[in-house]
């Protein structure tokens, strides 16, 4: 991970800490809108080989491309989990948000963005796919506001929130599986 990524992370943590100290309920929406943007970092790192033309060299190394992709996804998954957890804690401190609110405002938009970004990366090869990922993240950032409008006309039940989150989580796992499978198509056949 480069210096830029570390600095971006540090700025993000600082923003979260500042938000935690403000006791301003409007900050909830700001934080919720920023969370999907964090998908950019894992996606940039995930498609790094392809963007910089390192895939061919990595594919011929000791560890298969499949293995490399799985390890990267695992590391980035942990990163995402820690991020969502930190945002959850901040929301709890700032606005006494419940787990369900956290799930609806942060986890769901984050997963929608992550799913969209995975789909773009798998379908759209080349350096330019980062613009597609960016568009998906912007869309994800707008989702909390859409949810706010929905909330004004009637609060969704916990079951609906859980169902939507489970659905997007399932789609996300499917996308990860297809991403790994794609590497298998390139892999060695010692038949």
């Amino acid at each position: 991970m480069g210096l830029k990524s570390i600095l971006t992370g540090a700025v993000l943590v600082a923003l979260l800490l500042m938000a935690a100290g403000t006791e301003n309920t409007d900050m909830v929406w700001v934080i919720a809108s920023f969370a999907p943007a964090c998908v950019l970092t894992p996606m940039v790192l995930l498609s790094r080989s392809e963007r910089f033309g390192m895939e061919e060299l990595e594919a011929a190394s000791r560890f298969s491309l499949r293995f490399i992709r799985i390890v990267r996804m695992f590391i980035l998954g942990i990163f995402s989990l820690l991020l969502l957890l930190s945002v959850g804690i901040v929301l709890r401190i700032t606005a006494a948000a419940s787990v369900m609110e956290h799930m609806m405002l942060v986890v769901f938009p984050y997963l929608v963005s992550a799913y969209g970004a995975m789909l773009v990366t798998r379908k759209w090869h080349g350096k330019e796919n980062i613009f597609g990922v960016l568009a998906v993240c912007i869309f994800g950032g707008l989702l909390p506001y859409a949810e706010r409008s929905i909330r004004l006309s009637g609060r969704p039940t916990n079951a609906v929130i859980l169902l939507l989150t489970a659905m997007i989580l399932g789609a996300m796992f499917r996308e990860c599986r297809l991403y790994v499978k794609e590497s298998e198509n390139l892999s060695w056949n010692l038949s």
Partner: peptide, 22 residues
């Protein structure tokens, strides 16, 4: 029939055009 890992372990490759992380 060597294993995939053993084969890869024995392999060195220089592609025609290779990229690098800047």
């Amino acid at each position: 029939n060597v294993s995939e890992e053993m084969y890869r372990d024995a392999l060195g490759y220089l592609p025609q055009d290779f990229g690098y992380y800047p």
